[in-house]
Amino acid sequence: MTLPKTTRQYSYPELGSYNNLVIHEVPVGPPKANEVLVKTYAVSLQFCDLLIAAGLYPGHSPPRNLVPLSDMAGEVIAVGEDVKQWKKGDRVCANYMLDKLHNEETTAIGATALGGAINGVLTEFRTFPAHSLVEVPPHLSYEEASTLPCAALTAYNALLSGFEPLKAGDTILVQGTGGVAIFVLQFVVASGATAIVISSSDEKLKIATKLGAKHVINYNTTPSWDQEVLKLTNGLGVDHVIEIAGNSTLARSISSVRISGSISILGLLGGLDNVPAVDIVYPCVSKGLNIRGFHVGSVAQFKNMNKLISANPDTTRPVIDKVFPFEETKEAFSYFQSQAHVGKVVIKL
C-alpha cells in the first residue's frame, strides 16, 4: 500500500457548536521512529465531545483548529523503524490519554488527551506513539471496537479498579443507558453481579432488561428512585453506585448506597449549572463511604479489559445504536445530542 500524502479531517475554526466543524485536506507524513501510522475505520462519540464543541469542557484549552473526538479503531499501515510490537495490518485502538500507560496520571499525561488537549481522531489517517495503541479483540468489528477507548474503559475502571473491585453477588446501581452505562451493565452481568438501572424511558429500560438488568426504575415516574433502590435491597442499599449525572443526582446516589459502599463519579450529564448544593461530608463520614472520581483509564487497564471482553464475547458485545458516514458527522453529533440513543453512536470512515 502506498502511504497517503494527505488526510481528510474535521476541525473547529472556532468553538461554540459542532455545526462549526469544517472538513478539509491536510498533509500527513510517514511515522517517526517510535510512531505508527493508522488508517481510521471508525470513531465514536462521547458526551465530552459536545462540551468541547461548545467550549464548555472544564479545565481544557484546546489547540487552534482542534480536530475532535478521542475514540477510534483502525488498521496499522506503516510503523517507524524502532517499533517492534506492531506490524502492517494490525487492528488497533488508541488510548484516550496517549501517555497514560499505568495508573499514574500527571498534568503532562493529561496533556496527551485526544480530541481536547491535543488533536483527536476525526481524520482518515493519523500517527500515534507506538506505546499508546492496544490490539482490537479479534471478534469485534471496527465500528464495535471504536466504542472501547472511553466508554468501555471508563466502565471497566469504575467497576474493577476502585476501592472494592466488582465481584459476583454485588449489587450495582447504573444511571442511564448511554455508552458508559451500557458497558457498566454488561460488565456487571458478565461478572455475576446484579444491576439496577435507572432511566427516564421505559423503552430504554426494556433494552436494559434484555441486556441483563435485574431491576429497572423510571426516574420520571419514580422521582424518589433512591427510596425504590432501598426497597429493592431490603433497606441495605447497593454496594456501588456508578454516578454519571453528577451533582444533580449525587444526593440520591449517597442515599442509595450501603454503609461502607462505594460511589464512582465519572460524568456530569446532569450539567454544570443550576444544580443543588450537595453536602457530602456528613454522609461520607456517617456511612463510611468511598467516593472516587477518575478519568477514563490506562493502556494496561485497556489490555486487561479486552481480556474480559474476549472471554465474554456475547455478554459484552458493544451496543451500537446508529452508524453515520463520515460525510454526515454533524448529523451524528445532532443525533447524539438528542439522547435518543441507547449505547453508542459511531461514525464510519
Rank of each mutant, 00 (worst) to 15 (best):
V188G: 08
A190C: 08
S191E: 13
G192Y: 03
V197Q: 00
S201L: 10
D202T: 07
L205H: 07
I207Q: 04
I207L: 10
K210I: 10
A213W: 01
N218G: 00
Y219V: 08
T221M: 09
D226Q: 11
D226I: 07
D226G: 15
Q227K: 15
E228P: 05
K231Y: 01
T233C: 01
G235L: 11
V238G: 06
D239N: 13
E243Q: 13
I244C: 10
I244W: 02
G246N: 08
N247F: 12
A251Q: 13
I254A: 01
R258C: 05
R258K: 14
S262F: 06
S262P: 07
L269Q: 13
G270F: 04
D273R: 14
N274I: 11
N274Y: 11
V275E: 09
V275I: 11
V275T: 12
Y282A: 15
P283T: 07
C284H: 04
K287Y: 10
G288L: 05
L289F: 05
N290W: 11
I291G: 06
G297E: 03
G297K: 00
K303V: 15
N304E: 15
K307E: 14
S310P: 05
A311S: 14
P313L: 01
D314F: 09
T315P: 03
T316W: 00
R317D: 05
K322I: 09
